[in-house]
Design a protein around this nucleic acid. Structure first.
Ligand code: FES
Ligand code: FES
Lengths: 132, 132
DNA sequence: GTTTAATCCGACTAAAGAAGTCGTATTAAT
DNA sequence: ATTAATACGACTTCTTTAGTCGGATTAAAC
């Protein structure tokens, strides 16, 4: 139904929170979850994923937490979404060819065209812009 | 995950099939389902919905079936998708305000901006173009 | 007027995906 | 040693989507 997953939403909110902090400052996932009433465990896992991808940095142990690592001006929304929820594809066949309709489908090419335009919007939007 | 539902896919394929027929000619839902290996009952229900919306016309009884009614140049993809699967909204709050995060959310406005661009793409595409 | 081949439509079930929870391990400051 | 944080996989629950079924209606053909 063309909706972003909550995971993506939470990730964006977390990044915005982090980008409001002074450089190097650490924030616990608990603080963020508490502020926005987000399920803590879920946010934690999401932040861990962002850490693996080099978007945030983590410090373990008491007083540990997360802080921004990547430059949000250099990450586009398309890559970010694909990171968290897989390929941006209106249909299965938009990316790979695992679509069950592939042999008989008559709308593949036009849908693909629209898909490209959609991806373009996301590609042309940086995470920094989403934080504004 | 930003994917169209199968219902929408099937509906588009059916419309394309119908638009290949000569004006006034009837096609049974069974013929279409058979051609593209689509579950018959599901396609039938979808066509019935399109009929209620005035996009196709139906004739009951033996030798009955469906034929195009609306001009596909005059229907945009945005309306079509919304007809079949509800509002095009990246988040719950993009349309109504039923989002659970509404009080604390910090990314509402930027997401809304992107949502508008996305809808614009769909609005600027007619069904006729998708049939090409 | 009976049979038949189609649409009609709601209710149901099954499958898939998303969201959230839990348990346990690791890390490092105090 | 204790504590407060991250790390991470497995699990459960919830929601949505996909598909099926049963029975009604319609109208052509015989
Ligand atoms: S929808 Fe996948 S081939 Fe057309
Ligand atoms: S996602 Fe709904 S208010 Fe932000």
């Amino acid at each position: 139904m063309l909706k972003l997953s909550r995971k993506t939403e939470y990730a964006l909110m977390a990044l915005r929170h982090l980008s409001g902090k002074s450089a190097g400052e650490l924030t616990s996932s608990k603080e963020i979850a508490g502020t926005y009433r987000i399920p803590g465990e879920l946010l934690a896992k999401t932040l861990q994923q962002l850490a693996r991808e080099g978007i945030v940095e983590t410090v373990q142990g008491p007083h540990g937490g997360y802080r921004l690592k990547a430059n949000l001006n250099l990450i586009n929304l398309s890559d970010f979404i694909e990171l968290l929820e897989g390929p941006v594809a209106l249909t299965d066949c938009s990316i790979d060819n695992n679509c069950s309709q592939i042999m008989t489908c008559t709308i593949r090419t036009p849908i693909h065209r629209i898909n490209e335009k959609m991806k373009e919007i996301f590609s042309n939007t940086t995470l920094a812009e989403v934080m504004q």
